[in-house]
């Protein structure tokens, strides 16, 4: 009889333990099921990257995931970014979203993450490796082409144009320029009078534009291929009182640019959709974690906004994504 009681106690204890274990295990599952995605961008500053970040956070909220955001202190500090990526790999995050500072330098780290089974999504610009799950980019070539078409339109399909690009080495800059040139070539009456690189320095852009305008007084329009270049060019045209006679085709939509649009100095601008990029990067990172098939390359459309239609409700929302 005593043996029976012993046996009974043993059985009871076993059941109780199993029960407790099952309870705690349930909790564990709830905690660990929340995915942690590391978002490492080129920089925290500026309209473009800020909006990408915002889009990523919007997606994180919708899909119920955690985002671990970092970026190098200095936009061009490639080594710092490599460090951040390596740290994220060591932390064994569930996925990695990268806005790279350099086309080649990060390839090695990215390949390491890929080897360890961490999905890598690259946003905004490409990298020199195929070992990424997806690239989400503005179709810069297309954007350039659109800019070319609009430019030709503005000047009535004939005249001289100047180009101020922001970087010789940057892949996006190259693509934009290639797109632009290919569009301009369709219009035999449109000639490229000058081409300069401002290296993302507004002062430089301003000076280059001034120089270009004084050297080529017959220029009908200048196209600037990023926001810094656009602001510089607009400032130069404004100060030289060439409003109306020299049209400006801009990229992106900073407040400065919008002011210049209000003033009528900038005629049209190509607006990218960085929010969309950020949002989709998180969405596709999740899909990759779940081993769903996704496209290797996803292009986000850019849009042309003219001075006349900038206050239409749908364009307002594109031009002023931040609520102040």
């Amino acid at each position: 009889m005593r043996k029976m009681i012993k046996l009974f106690r043993l059985v009871f204890l076993t059941i109780f333990t199993v029960f407790l274990i099952s309870c705690t295990k349930n909790n564990d599952i709830n905690n660990t099921s929340r995915k942690n995605i590391s978002l490492i961008l080129r920089t925290s500053y500026g309209y473009h990257w800020g909006t990408i970040k915002m889009g990523a956070y919007a997606a994180a909220r919708e899909f119920n995931v955690d985002i671990d955001y970092t970026s190098p202190y200095d936009e061009d500090d490639v080594n710092e970014q490599i460090n951040l990526v390596n740290q994220a790999i060591e932390k064994k995050v569930d996925a990695l979203i990268l806005g790279v500072s350099d086309y080649e330098a990060l390839s090695e780290s990215i390949e390491r993450a890929y080897k360890q089974g961490i999905p890598v999504i690259v946003v905004d610009s490409e990298v020199d490796t195929e070992k990424v799950n997806s690239c989400i980019l503005t179709n810069n070539y297309e954007a350039g082409k659109k800019a070319g078409d609009v430019l030709a339109d503005i000047i009535g399909k004939e005249g001289k144009v100047g180009i101020i690009n922001y970087d010789k080495e940057d892949r996006n800059a190259q693509l934009r320029e290639e797109g632009l040139i290919s569009a301009i070539k369709k219009y035999p009456e449109v000639k490229v009078a000058a081409k300069e690189y401002c290296f993302s320095d507004m002062k430089q852009a301003y000076n280059l534009a001034k120089k270009m305008l004084s050297e080529n007084p017959d220029i009908d329009a200048i196209v600037a291929l990023n926001e810094v270049a656009s602001e510089g060019v607009a400032q130069a045209v404004d100060e030289m009182k060439l409003k109306g006679s020299v049209k400006v085709m801009a990229f992106n939509s900073t407040f400065q640019e919008i002011d210049y649009m209000d003033k009528g100095i900038i005629q049209a601008t190509i607006v990218q959709n960085p929010f969309n990029m950020g949002y989709l990067s998180v969405k596709y990172a999740l899909d990759s974690i779940e081993k769903k098939e996704i496209d290797k390359r996803i292009y986000i459309d850019s849009r042309v906004i003219y001075r006349d239609n900038m206050y239409l409700p749908e364009n307002q929302k594109l031009l002023f994504p931040f609520i102040k």
Binding site: M54, F275, N276, Y279
Partner: peptide, 16 residues
């Protein structure tokens, strides 16, 4: 029926 506020305003704007 116009959206006054939406937490994912931008997504709605771009049709996502």
């Amino acid at each position: 029926g116009n959206i006054v506020y939406h937490p994912q305003q931008q997504l709605i704007n771009i049709g996502l």
